[in-house]
């Protein structure tokens, strides 16, 4: 008993600090995307007609499916933390795996969405796009930058989820020490939060 206490005392761990650190990082992410949202707002204000016209070319159904996919992945991520708190390791691994699989579905959808646009010449610098009005060009520029930056975050999330699955398997993340999984969850929910705003701003507002 004494021995294990001594070992505990030597293991320096600060879950509270780890979580504060994660939140501080999320605030920098908020400002990163926030800056782009401000650019979007100003250009939308200036080129309302062009934005309206261009936004009709995005497939609302694909956007909605991706919204549902991301919301569901947030659910499985949140549940994986409850599972590990209850000591249900295999359930937790399965739920993180489901999150990862849903992230992949999101990326596959994105791939088809983007390639379809590329085929129509609608990409930054594309001939067909450059013949259009300034508002439409700016809309597609922002569309690629903002959803692209978001997609990079999804890819990074998939790498993080893979690490979490390994950590859960090896017991590095366990019933008594799961702050890494919690912080991964916070990151994943932020990715979801950004999409919650990207979806209406690009797909719905005509």
């Amino acid at each position: 008993m004494n021995h294990s206490n001594a070992v505990q005392a030597h293991m320096h761990r600060d879950d509270y600090g780890a979580k504060i650190g994660m939140w501080l990082f999320l605030f920098t992410e908020l400002i990163l995307f926030g800056g782009l949202f401000i650019v979007y707002a100003v250009y939308r204000f200036t080129y309302g007609d062009g934005f309206s016209l261009a936004s009709k070319e995005l497939d609302t159904l694909v956007g909605m499916i991706n919204t549902i996919v991301l919301l569901t992945s947030s659910l499985t991520m949140a549940m994986s933390i409850t599972a590990i708190q209850q000591g249900r390791r295999r359930l937790s691994i399965g739920l993180v795996g489901a999150t990862n699989a849903l992230a992949l579905v999101f990326m596959v959808n994105k791939y088809f969405e983007w390639t379809a646009k590329f085929h129509h010449g609608l990409f930054p610098g594309g001939k067909e796009l450059l013949e259009r009005t300034n508002g439409e060009i700016l809309y597609f520029g922002l569309y690629y930058v903002m959803t692209g930056l978001h997609a990079i975050h999804v890819l990074i999330g998939m790498v993080i989820m893979t690490f979490m699955m390994v950590y859960l398997k090896t017991g590095h993340v366990n019933k008594d020490s799961f702050v890494k999984l919690e912080n991964s969850g916070l990151y994943w929910h932020l990715v979801d939060l950004i999409w919650i705003f990207l979806f209406p701003l690009f797909y719905l507002i005509h």
């Binding site: 293991m11 761990r13 509270y16 949140a78 409850t82 020490s177």
Partner: peptide, 14 residues
């Protein structure tokens, strides 16, 4: 600090 004063949230809530 080292303590995990975690609030366990049920699956139903999520």
């Amino acid at each position: 600090g080292t303590k995990n004063h975690a609030h366990v949230i049920g699956y139903g809530t999520y």
